[in-house]
Design a protein around this nucleic acid. Structure first.
Lengths: 246, 246
DNA sequence: AGTCATAGTTGGGCATTATACAACGTCATT
DNA sequence: AATGACGTTGTATAATGCCCAACTATGACT
């Protein structure tokens, strides 16, 4: 017994509450988790007592509570990478004209922890806290290619270009390692191309990735190489910076 | 038995992890929560398995995991108030030249859910996710005066000006109701003054508060009334907006 | 309005689960 | 090399949380 059942159930409920935008009812929770209604009721009310869940008295559905926002702040402000990356993100945005993103691996996904928005009207936003799949995003593939992140079991398809074969992906990652940067060529969002590179710390361990995202009309195959040079360059600078942090 | 013990303990651990900036060891956790080391170990490893905690293999101390960042996003994007308030916050900042903040009540505190920073070099930042006390902040007092938020049991002192008597606070809130806005006159941060008003929804229920914060040197007693007029005005507009939301 | 149906909460017996205690392994420090 | 501190793991026990069921509240439909 190395996993505490009721805590695990509570955490699963938090996950579910996070996914459902319009709240979840007790019965839905009970069904999804395959637990008794009574148990579900007690679990959520415990979550609610500590501010992690909130009950809408009208609809009797539960939402995530505000407590988690407070928690997330402590996570973000603690990350040395985030602080260090601020100016590099800004540079990247200014030099490329596209939104720049910073991400770390989390739970088999890529988690966006910072963003500098481009002033362009048409731009690709990714709010802090967004979690996207690894296999079809530039940031994710940078992590896969250079880090010790596992390739997910199933590769979900999002667009016609999404790589769905593990074999193909392996070869693709090989190529990424060779050229030094990862490209997402409309593999997640149609009409969106991204370029990303990994960030290393003092042990040459991959701790995150940095990159840009923009509409395919601006990040054209012709412009891509020169944009990639900038991303690589700034990524290298940030990695060097992280080498001497702490 | 309406509270699930082990879940509650897990949540308390999350709180502790959120407060400690440099991680917590198992023994510290066990002592603080007055549980066995073994239990603490199992609880945290469950948290870790689901991404809510993270173990620093070097120091063997635990941090909050990245998972909570993902959760917080769903909270923030769900709040209709936050979306609606964006442009009002910006207006407020532009017209007053000070940082504008948006907050909601949470767990007997005031939780900052959005901010528009002023371009001034000297400015009062409050990052999203910050939780401050109710009785000594303008936003908090606005919530207390107009909302159904309880006055906390103990009124902690932060500066010489902090109101620490419940009676005095009651009268002060009365005054706030009369004039329509709340002021924090260096009651939380020395050298910082704030002005805030409550935001009402379609039922005339207080759902949050909006306000500005700045150095006392700029928000002087002389300028205060005219600044307050702007805050009141924009607050009224936002409340009206929220009346027709949904 | 009255009845029915659905959903959420509460109570109690019981088995599973989490706990406390202790031993072990690991690492750092002297 | 030895000691000490810390985290993890094993195990018996009893307390905890689970299941089932009854109860309550709320809303729908006639």
């Amino acid at each position: 017994m190395t996993e505490i059942q009721s805590l695990a159930r509570g955490l699963k409920i938090l996950d579910l509450l996070g996914q459902a935008s319009d709240g979840i009812s007790i019965t839905e929770l009970a069904e999804t988790l395959k637990v008794d209604k009574g148990s579900a009721s007690r679990l959520v009310s415990t979550l609610a007592r500590y501010g992690y869940a909130e009950k809408d008295e009208v609809t009797r559905r539960y939402h995530l509570g505000p407590q988690v926002v407070g928690l997330s702040r402590s996570v973000l402000t603690r990350l040395p990478l985030r602080e260090a990356a601020k100016s590099y993100l800004r540079q990247l945005m200014e030099r490329t004209g596209e939104c720049a993103h910073l991400a770390v691996p989390a739970q088999g996904k890529v988690l966006y922890i910072d963003q500098v928005e481009s002033p362009a009207t048409l731009r690709v936003n990714a709010e802090v806290g967004t979690m996207n799949p690894l296999h079809c995003t530039a940031l994710g593939k940078a992590l896969l290619a250079f880090g010790d992140v596992e390739i997910p079991g199933t590769l979900e398809r999002f667009t016609p270009r999404t790589i769905k074969s593990k074999r193909t992906l392996q070869g693709h990652l090989e190529e990424i390692r060779r050229i030094g940067y990862a490209v997402d060529d409309e593999e997640f969002d149609p009409g969106v191309r991204c370029i990303a590179v990994p960030i290393f710390d003092f042990r040459d361990k991959v701790i995150g990735a940095i990159g840009i995202s923009g509409p395919s009309t601006r990040i054209t195959p012709e412009r891509l190489p020169q944009l990639a040079v900038m991303v690589v360059e700034i990524g290298k600078a940030l990695s060097e910076r992280m080498t001497f942090t702490r």
